[in-house]
């Protein structure tokens, strides 16, 4: 089996930057990713990435992808890593389509996935009214009533994406306050179509063949209500995509990978974690990109010491 110097898992800002830095150091590198979309690609507009104000998420990802393809680096797209195993001083990377790769070092840059609501009806109605991507699916809700679950930034952004289409938009938030940025709150409060409901816990999504109603519990009055609804957009945050290294590297209580921020090294020498997947505060594209660079340079040093 071919032996790589470095395998990068993930094709977001951290993984792509790590790839560019590794290629410039002439490391024999493989980047494995499901796609070049991720969290960034599903974001409508990005205003806080340096040099490219107002760019759409998918355009930014296209630029990242073009950039990395300028370098000599092997890419396996449409591959999901399901396990990383330690093999003496090396690591074995296994993918869902049963490919195996051997490497001296690993950078984990898999970012985060949408957090599921975990109520009855959610899984059954994915694509039939339940969606995690408002910019993708909003046009199907012309003149319909929709619920957005979650009162954070992504919930408010989803509600605003739906404005053009839906006739009524309910935002359901479980806690007693909105945590979205003030600028988004102001925009949403101006719109008559948007109704914000605090202290409401969604219990069930119901329907026949498609979403027709939603059951929620009022945490203050302790009463349960049913509201007719055609769509549910789940926006209750994200969870780190770390299942494939469980037991191999140390996690914090939120399942984020613990790293030493001087080098992005994990508890397992030779494995590094960069971007949203690690236990760093503030998940931002520019931070992820910066950590990707740091991790790749740390890998270079690690390999020098290894030989």
């Amino acid at each position: 089996m071919e032996l790589y110097d470095l395998i990068i898992i993930g094709g977001g800002p951290a993984g792509v930057t790590a790839g560019i830095y590794a290629a410039r150091k002439k490391l024999k590198t493989l980047l494995v990713t499901e796609d070049f979309i991720g969290q960034v690609g599903k974001t409508g507009q990005i205003d806080n990435y340096l040099g490219l104000p107002g760019i759409s998420g998918i355009e930014l990802m296209e630029k990242f992808k073009e950039h990395i393809k300028k370098f000599e680096i092997e890419i396996q797209e449409a591959e999901k890593v399901v396990r990383v195993k330690k093999e003496k001083e090396f690591f074995l990377i296994k993918t869902g389509s049963k490919k195996n790769f051997l490497t001296k070092s690993v950078i984990i840059a898999t970012g985060r996935d949408p957090r599921p609501l975990e109520v009855p009806g959610e899984k059954e109605f994915i694509g039939q009214g339940v969606s995690y991507c408002s910019i993708c699916d909003a046009p199907f809700f012309q003149d319909k009533a929709v619920a957005v679950i979650g009162g954070g930034n992504s919930g408010f952004e989803a509600a605003l994406d739906l404005l053009k289409y839906a006739k009524r938009i309910f935002i359901f938030e479980r806690s007693d306050k909105i945590i979205a940025d003030e600028i988004l709150q102001e925009e949403a409060k101006k719109e008559k179509k948007i109704e914000i409901h605090l202290n409401k816990e969604v219990k069930k999504i119901e329907g026949r063949g498609k979403v027709q109603s939603l059951l929620y519990h009022d945490l203050k009055t302790k009463k349960t209500f049913q509201v007719p609804i055609d769509g549910v957009f789940v926006q209750i945050g994200t969870i780190p995509a770390t299942a494939f290294v469980k037991g191999l590297v140390e996690f914090n209580e939120a399942d984020e990978i613990k790293v030493d921020f001087k080098t992005c090294q994990t508890s397992c020498p030779g494995i590094f974690a960069a971007g949203d997947v690690n236990d760093g505060k503030w998940k931002q594209i520019i931070i992820a990109a910066g950590e990707g660079a740091r991790a790749a340079l740390a890998v270079y040093k690690y390999l020098q010491n290894m030989n």
């Binding site: 796609d35 979309i37 599903k42 993708c136 699916d137």
Partner: peptide, 11 residues
């Protein structure tokens, strides 16, 4: 498709 849907662009 829709113009801004990322998986549509990839497809």
């Amino acid at each position: 498709s829709t113009p801004v849907c990322p998986y549509c662009v990839s497809l």
